[in-house]
């Protein structure tokens, strides 16, 4: 078995995280991933603290292995969720969409491992200085809210800049992507879309089927002009965003269309007016497997690829 910085740090078997996807990453999915030896992550998204608390209580019944909580720093319930996470002493906290700031100290006092998602080298360096245990570098191949840099460009630059482990994310869905990430210097990978299409994931079947049927060019980035670009699969709602962008419409117009759209896709299976947040690698995903099958293929497959490369 392969041990590395990240598996040692978190006491997990395989260096793979399941991405924190709002509405998608609940206790069932995260629990399945943790039980399979990866790091399952519950996504707090914009959910209130009581939902987060019930999911954390639930995952502790599903698994005795480490798991993470992804906290979206732009959530209206940010403060409640940040304090709750400390109170519940979740093993790992992932922060996204902003800096964890002063909460980092609070969490470290509870011996929680803190891993911020970083869009740039300077951000990663700052997080390291603040005491982060590792960083996740997510390229713009990823689904959902994205940064500017691609995984291929971002990961090696951050790896060179910081001394803490780096987890690569964005565009990774199979053993080849994982092997490439390890070659870029990453200690682990975070995989989102592939786990969305897993048997244990509660996302609506329509959404999963849409990912399975989509091709390489079918995801688009919406809302660049708003400063909060989002990658999702092309449909009515992305076409509406495109029209708004051309018109130079104000932020409110985007919000009016976007409000509740992710829930529509994930929970209701509305593939027309729902926001089908998914990564560029969607086109590669052809079948729904269990989390343990995915982890085995991605991680053990990557090790085999690397070991056999010379031949």
């Amino acid at each position: 078995m392969h041990r590395n910085q990240i598996t040692e740090l978190l006491n997990i078997k395989y260096p793979i995280f399941q991405g924190g996807m709002a509405w998608v990453s609940d206790a069932d999915l995260a629990g399945a991933v943790s039980n399979a030896g990866g790091l399952g992550i519950i996504a707090a998204g914009n959910a209130p603290a009581d939902w987060v608390e019930s999911e954390v209580n639930k995952i502790r019944k599903i698994t005795d292995k480490p798991f993470g909580l992804n906290i979206m720093m732009m959530s209206p319930f940010k403060e409640d969720v940040c304090e709750l996470a400390a109170k519940l002493e979740v093993p790992v906290i992932i922060t996204g969409a902003g800096s964890p700031g002063n909460y980092l100290k609070l969490w470290k006092e509870k011996n929680i491992k803190v891993i911020p998602v970083c869009p740039s080298t300077s951000f990663a360096l700052r997080m390291e200085r603040y005491g982060a245990d590792a960083v996740i570098c997510e390229g713009s191949e990823a689904g959902g809210h994205i940064g500017q840099l691609t995984t291929m460009a971002l990961v090696p630059q951050v790896v060179d800049a910081v001394n803490i482990p780096v987890i690569a994310a964005g565009g990774i869905a199979d053993k080849r992507g994982a092997a490439a990430a390890f070659m870029l210097g990453a200690s682990g990978v975070q995989v989102g879309t592939r786990f969305l299409v897993s048997k244990e994931c509660n996302a609506h079947q329509n959404f999963k089927d849409k990912v399975i049927s989509s091709k390489d060019v079918h995801t688009v980035v919406s809302g660049l002009s708003t400063g909060h670009p989002v990658r999702s699969i092309k449909n009515s709602i992305t076409n509406k965003f495109k029209k708004l962008e051309k018109k130079g419409a104000p932020m409110d117009d985007f919000e009016n269309i976007g409000r509740g759209a992710l829930r529509k896709a994930v929970v209701e299976g509305d593939i027309k007016n729902g926001s089908l947040m998914a990564g560029q690698i969607s086109g590669l995903i052809k079948e729904e497997l269990s989390c343990s099958e995915i982890i085995d293929e991605v991680i053990n497959g990557a090790y085999d690829l690397i070991n056999n490369f010379k031949n």
Binding site: V217, H218, I233, K234, N235, S236, T238, N239, K272
Partner: peptide, 8 residues
């Protein structure tokens, strides 16, 4: 290819 609805 364009993510459209048929009636569009």
């Amino acid at each position: 290819e364009l993510g459209l609805e048929e009636d569009e």
